[in-house]
Design a binder for these strands. Structure first.
Length: 854
RNA sequence: GCGGGCGUGGUGAAAUUGGUAAACACAAGGGACUUAAAAUCCCUCGGCCUUACGGCCUUGUCGGUUCAAGUCCGACCGCCCGCACCA
């Protein structure tokens, strides 16, 4: 039996779609629009299975919505600036631009073999001046609209390479290449005022009703709105005050110390005359800048000897520490410690032997006996040991204590956000140049618009240390646009999140002279459905939400939220393999027979490990190109959708791929090679249908209804299961039954249309076999379910006794409760369990269940 | 450390959102076809007990609410993701 020739077919239909420009779109006010977007890839070299999953999900949505009559925008492009290009330049001596463009060419070719319904005329790459000149313009607009400022901030500094390191390049406190101990250094950098929008970004989350709850929660926590107070402590022997921020002013009477960040001005000042403190601060500065590193480090403090006076208790002096767990970027960079009611403070107090005074006791405990051991008490309760606050609950105490602080003029009520302003300066070559000129006389001067874009120099060398763009012999030297004297360009480039914060808007009119074409963005935005990895839950999505608001403020667009719907897909995982020496092996090197794995080449034993996220380092990767070569794109796509819901991790298995492949062939044979009779394409419904044919007819309509609902909710795996069930039903249809040939045609055409978004090439081939080739499936509307076939007259109802299933009964739909009760009680099984006694109670849930309580 | 999530047969999962747990597949075992293999088709397939009819148990663990819990509540265990310069 001939198999379905996927290779020939996939190439054929891809060419047809392209020739007919099936997926090219323009604004069309007469149709509802639908904008589907998958997160654009970083051009790392080759596509991986994560891409295949992401783009398959997007393509199913795009093709389904098109069939549903929407004007669908579905673009693709490249997030082309980033560190890997610079690493490649250093390792292989290839210019980042060449490396990136070659990768794009390879990956574009690979993507095209997947049969994705992109409007390729809208393709963009962020590393091209035609793209980044617009974000330089936007930056200047942000500057003009007071959304940008400069401040000192800390970076990871590799003293050997003389470069700034990314957090991922710092491994155990050392530079990944040099191995040198990393230091923190302060640099003057550009910041965007995302905190101006903190409240708006927080409120906006409520409008994102088609985002996963967990992502909304993560964003909410990231913004981290808190209500508390600033409190000013007087310092013995000094005129200045120590300002702290606290969310628990109610616990002030339990204070036993104050602590400031290592980079707090007070710490810096005291360190000048105290070399031990200077050493301690230097030690803190060796920790790297990542919050995870800071928070997991052992809590250390240095007693400055200074004393802070308690605001309410005369003569109660608190020692002032410099502590490594206090963050300079949060609040005022200083805290007061109340060990009894904060775990970190408690750990710190136990270590440095500071008093632990409980001031909140759980309701119902005796205040005298309440003590804190190794666990701080952080819940609500009643205030004790707290003078005028005694007996209040925590919220009331907070309010009262702040009133008192305000009356005394030593504190204020304050709202604080965990969110920090967005530092966008990067000391790197492969990014968008920041369009600023530094002039000795005029200071900071924006590059005039007519001089945009500021293009990256192509002739840079990566031999030396430091930022190659800053070392370039001529690039940075310019005349000041204001005064004409020699000046220097800014050599920093933008964070690559800058490019990805507005690309979705650029797709609306990627060739426009202006950054954004107003009519186009007004038509297409917001993105109706955005699809990508959960790893972007906070940063990329929050920056894009901020950028959209900033662009609105500058008059570029009208929407506030860029992404109306969000689907976050899980990772693609695979089993891991190691050889006898413990070295990782590629799955393609391994023969797997049942549970035993051997090395394909030598037959040597192989240890199998658990399934983990596919990664180059563990070699548990499967190359999509090899899969598409061997099985075709439709098989890969179907497998991606069949077994796991999209938001969960997906285990890639050869057996699963085989299963998808077999199903496609089975469907092909069923349509193209089956001997069973098939009615003519336009034959009317026969008057008489055999009951078996009637059943299949019903399931055709139920499947249309079910699959449509599944696709709307992104339950692709369930949709596949339903289509397979319908296929089984059609296959089991007796060819001689009255009307079977007609139902069979309807069923096969339906299966073809329903599966088309998932396996579009096969669907087109089936459509031709079904003599429907006059129109492409890609241009054919979605089938409609006839409501008359969706309801059953008879319902199967479960009968339980005391919650345990004892049998089932068939009853007419929506039958009266007492009818159901009588039928249930009439069951022999029920009677025998009841042992002749009358039931105590009978619960009837119509069309579902009868529960007899004995 | 902080924040978020996940946990159901040998495996991926489904369960109309509190109402028949395991749909649809994969793997495995048995059979048919074949000189043979591949492909295809048919049967069995959560566990324990039972010759059978059937019975009991089962959704990470423990407890709770309810006529009824995979689903709700509480505690615990395990794994995964993010933490602001990876994208």
């Amino acid at each position: 039996m001939a198999r379905y020739n996927f290779k020939e077919n996939e190439q054929k239909w891809q060419a047809v779609w392209e020739d007919k420009a099936c997926f090219q779109v323009t604004e069309d006010a007469s149709r509802p629009k639908y904008y589907v977007l998958e997160m654009f890839p970083y051009p790392s070299g080759r596509i991986h299975m994560g891409h295949v999953r992401n783009y398959t999900l997007g393509d199913v949505v795009a093709r389904y919505k098109k069939a549903r009559g929407f004007n669908v925008l579905h673009p693709m492009g490249w997030d082309a600036f980033g560190l890997p290009a610079e690493n490649a330049a250093i390792e292989n001596k290839v210019p980042p631009a060449d490396w990136t463009r070659e990768n794009i060419a390879t990956m574009r070719k690979q993507l095209k073999t997947m049969g994705l319904s992109y409007d390729w005329t809208r393709e963009l790459a962020t590393c091209e001046p035609g793209y980044y000149r617009h974000e330089q313009k936007m930056f200047l607009d942000f500057l003009a609209n007071d959304l940008v400022y400069r401040k000192e901030s800390w970076v990871n500094w590799d003293p050997e390479e003389n470069t700034v390191l990314a957090n991922e390049q710092v491994i155990d406190g050392r530079g990944w290449r040099s191995g040198a101990l990393v230091e923190k250094r302060q640099l003057s950098q550009w910041f965007l005022k995302i905190t101006d929008f903190a409240e708006e970004l927080l409120k906006g989350i409520d409008t994102l009703d088609r985002w996963p709850d967990r992502v909304r929660l993560m964003q909410e926590n990231w913004i981290g709105r808190s209500e508390g107070a600033h409190v000013h402590f007087t310092l013995d022997g000094r005129d200045d005050k120590l300002e702290i921020y606290t969310t628990r002013p109610d616990t002030l009477f339990g204070a036993s110390f104050c602590a400031v960040a290592a980079n707090h001005p007070l710490a810096q000042e005291l360190a000048k005359d105290n070399s031990d403190l200077a050493d301690f601060i230097a030690e803190c500065n060796r920790m790297g800048t990542s919050e995870a590193a800071i928070e997991t480090a052992e809590k250390l403090g240095f007693d400055t000897g200074l004393k802070a006076q308690h605001p309410f208790v005369d003569g109660h002096a608190l020692p002032v520490y410099v502590a490594n767990f206090v963050l300079m970027d949060y609040g005022s960079g200083a805290i007061f410690g109340c060990p009894a009611h904060d775990q970190r403070d408690l750990d710190f107090a136990r270590k440095y032997d500071l008093p632990v005074i409980p001031v909140v006791a759980p309701k119902g405990t005796e205040p005298e006996t309440f003590a804190v051991g190794d666990e701080a008490f952080t819940d609500d309760g009643l205030l004790i040991n707290s003078d005028f606050l005694n007996g209040l609950n925590v919220p009331d105490a907070k309010s009262k204590v702040i009133d008192r602080l305000e009356d005394m003029g030593i504190g204020t009520r304050a709202v604080n956000y965990r969110l920090r302003d967005w530092g966008v300066s990067r000391q790197r070559y492969w990014g968008c140049p920041i369009p600023i000129i530094h002039c000795g006389d005029c200071g900071i001067v924006p590059v005039p618009e007519k001089d945009l874009p500021v293009e990256l120099p192509a002739d840079v060398d990566f031999e030396g240390t430091g930022n190659p763009i800053a070392r370039h012999p001529t690039w940075k030297h310019v005349d000041c646009p204001k005064c004409g004297k020699p000046a220097e360009r800014e050599t920093d480039t933008f964070d690559t999140f800058f490019e990805s914060s507005w690309y979705f808007a650029r797709y609306c009119a990627p060739q426009a002279d202006e950054p954004l074409d107003r009519a186009a963005v007004d038509y297409w935005l917001p993105v109706d459905q955005y699809i990508g990895g959960i790893e972007h839950a906070v940063l990329h999505l929050l920056y894009s939400r901020f950028f959209t608001r900033a662009l609105k403020k500058c008059g570029y667009l009208s929407v506030e939220e860029p992404f109306a719907g969000l689907l976050t897909q899980g990772m693609v995982c695979h089993q891991t393999f190691k050889d006898a020496d413990g070295k990782w092996l590629f799955p393609s090197q391994v023969n797997l027979e049942g549970e035993t794995a051997t090395l394909a080449e030598t037959g040597a034993p192989v240890t199998t490990g658990r399934s983990e996220k596919m990664s180059k380092s563990k070699k548990n990767v499967v190359d999509p190109e090899a899969i598409i070569e061997a099985y075709g794109a439709d098989t890969a796509r179907l497998f991606m959708l069949s077994d796991s819901p999209p938001d969960r991790d997906l285990e890639w298995t050869d057996a699963g791929v085989d299963g998808a492949w077999r199903y496609l062939n089975r469907l092909w044979r069923l349509v193209a090679e089956s001997a069973a009779p098939l009615a003519a394409p336009d034959a009317g419904k026969p008057d008489a249908l055999d009951s078996s044919a009637e059943e299949v007819l019903k399931s055709v309509h139920k499947t249309i209804d079910g699959v449509s609902g599944d696709l709307e909710k992104f339950h692709f795996n369930k949709a596949v299961a339903r289509i397979r069930e319908l296929t089984n039903a059609i296959e089991g249809l007796d060819g001689d039954a009255a009307g079977a040939d007609w139902v069979r045609r309807l069923g096969l055409e339906t299966v073809t249309l329903l599966i088309a978004p998932m396996t579009p090439h096969l669907a087109e081939a089936l459509w031709v076999e079904l003599e429907r080739g006059g129109q492409l499936v890609a241009d054919t509307p979605w089938p409609e379910a006839d409501a008359a076939y969706l309801v059953d007259d008879l319902m199967t109802i479960a009968v339980q006794v005391n919650g345990k299933l004892r049998g089932t009964i068939e009853l007419p739909k929506d039958c009266a409760k007492d009818v159901a009760e009588d039928a249930a009680l009439a069951l022999d099984k029920v009677q025998s369990v009841l042992e002749g006694k009358p039931p105590r109670k009978v619960i009837v849930v119509p069309n579902r269940i009868v529960n007899v309580v004995a």
